[in-house]
Simulated scan of single mutants.
Amino acid sequence: MDTLRALEAFVHSIELGSLSGAARALGTTQPTVSKLVAGLERSLGVRLLRRTAAGLSLTEEGQRFHERSRRVLEDYGDAVADAREGIRQPRGLLRVSAPVTLGQRHLNAMALEFLGLYPDIELELVLDDRFVDPLEGRIDVSLRVGGTLPPDLVARRLGSWPRVLVASPDYIASRGNPRKPQDLLSHDYLRYAAGDDGVLLDGPEGPVPVPVRSRYRVNNAVAMLDAVLGGAGISLQPTWMVAELLAQGRLVRVLGRHTGPAQEMHLLYAPRRHQPQRVRVLVDFLAQRVAKLPGSAA
């Protein structure tokens, strides 16, 4: 029995959810995959998979064996990539996840530049404001903006960006320009749906909590930015998102001596002894480009 091939059949069957999916990934037939998995079970003397009308599931023994099998295949792939590294350019598929607004405003252009530098790499950019766990979502690199860092992943810090209060020129012309933090109480303040009422600002007088309430809350950064640009109110936004709009005059800074809590960015990826060359070059590329986003406080 080709043990390595059998491990590939087993791992792909679980991660793709079916024997037919594994067959397509391996370029073979479903009966062949079924025979490989059955042969693996016979050689181990344990049952790894339950096959039902609803699909495949792991036995208790299969759960333990799956994780180690995946690591064996990763180590083998790393060894092959390392051996070939000196004779060829990085190649293969990379899946990258990032928040929607960051992807639209900045990462999309970076991704196209990266593909121009590495013609043998394929790149899939997954934009989602929810954090996508790289291990569960088969993501090679995840760009995390704020939030708690998962303890089981490598986190490479990229920099810090202050949050600033912004509004459209039309809104300020209509409602006036706040002169002190407490003036925000008489303005329309826009916030994200997951946040709490109130805002904490830091200024010459130190931290200032302002108990603003919001009539409009939204869970999407693109929609929030569109609302601010449309004159709906004042919002606290990271400088990487609004620096260019401020420079263009499409937004104006409110309470210019005050900032909100800074927003940090990290690149997250799985801890492996030998990262594939394509992952290493992507991490280095993004680290350099993202650190240069406007408004960085380093």
Rank of each mutant, 00 (worst) to 15 (best):
D197G: 04
A193P: 01
I139M: 06
R51T: 12
R215P: 00
N108S: 10
G55Y: 00
L40W: 07
A243V: 09
Q277A: 14
L225P: 03
D120F: 01
G195K: 09
Q237I: 01
D183P: 06
V100P: 00
K292P: 00
S174N: 12
D188G: 01
Y171G: 04
H187S: 05
G206S: 11
Q182I: 09
Q237C: 03
A232T: 08
H66T: 00
L255D: 09
A287K: 13
P294I: 08
G147E: 06
S13Y: 00
F65A: 08
D78G: 13
H12K: 12
V166A: 15
A98V: 15
L123K: 01
K292I: 00
G198P: 08
A291V: 03
L184F: 10
R51N: 12
D78S: 15
G203F: 02
G39M: 02
D284S: 14
R50C: 13
N177E: 11
G231E: 07
A194E: 13
M265C: 07
A25C: 12
S186H: 09
R24M: 07
P294V: 09
L236S: 15
L73R: 10
V80A: 08
L107D: 07
P31A: 06
V228C: 01
P238V: 10
G27F: 13
M224K: 05
S97L: 04
D170L: 04
Q248T: 13
V228T: 14
V252T: 07
G159D: 10
L251P: 05
E74K: 03
K180Y: 10
E113F: 01
N219G: 14
Y76R: 13
R95D: 09
L112N: 09
P207L: 03
P211Y: 02
L185P: 05
P294E: 03
L94H: 14
